[in-house]
Write a protein that binds this DNA or RNA. Structure first.
Lengths: 116, 116
DNA sequence: GCCTATCATTTCGCCATCGAAACGACATTA
DNA sequence: TAATGTCGTTTCGATGGCGAAATGATAGGC
């Protein structure tokens, strides 16, 4: 049986998790950055700039900049593709994995607290 | 029985909805703005600047600016409190209600599509 | 070996957001 | 009514994101 949410539950879940994210305040990721981060950690590698740009429907510079920012935060890393030096492979990091894990915990916790 | 999500499900749900938000591209709300909007539409009125600031753990100017932006988008409205003219009451709008409803639909749809 | 295509990045000017502090309007207290 | 407190907004300078276009490096076609 799929995960069935009523409208009120769905919106409350979204609100509650967003509130956690805002109150945490540490990492201040945009929607794009969050999507990129989760894509990198949820979908099978390798991940490239052009691949992410196509998936999100945004320009490549937008991806590059997002990776710059998240790279400074230690959430992702980059290395050149040895087999095709034009490509850049985006790599996961320990800090990034921990961040994503915490985010998952937030969602799970808030979902469990939802009125049934 | 509460809504139980496995880690993979929780993160995929979050990712999928975020991807919808990014790809939509129309309204480009920050985490703060999203939280404010959902608070206004989910919790009982009246809503004030100081109340939202306290709830989100951010400064009042941050709330004022977020309301300015969302006001221009037609997602919220403001009026002075007649009984205490220092206060500003934040009001819902039709456009805001529709936006929130669409957001709820996204979450419901993505939750239903989750692998069980 | 060229020429063109591809990939990621950098540059440009612009706009939105940020925290901190100052401000103006209104209410409350004495 | 004068002093103090509260509420929301505005200002300030700084930071960072944005799209579009240009750039540098590499690969592949011929």
């Amino acid at each position: 049986m799929p995960v069935e949410l009523r409208p009120g539950q769905a919106l409350k879940l979204w609100h509650d998790v967003m509130l956690d994210v805002v109150r945490d305040g540490e990492t201040d990721l945009t929607a794009r950055q969050t999507t990129i981060l989760l894509t990198i950690y949820l979908e099978p590698p390798p991940h490239t700039v052009r691949g992410l740009a196509a998936k999100l429907g945004v320009t490549k510079p937008a991806i590059t900049r997002a990776l710059d920012t998240m790279g400074k935060m230690g959430l992702v890393d980059r290395k050149r593709d040895e087999t095709d030096l034009r490509n850049v492979i985006i790599l996961r990091t320990v800090a990034g994995a921990l961040y994503v894990e915490r985010m998952g915990d937030m969602v799970i916790k808030r979902a469990r607290e939802l009125p049934r």
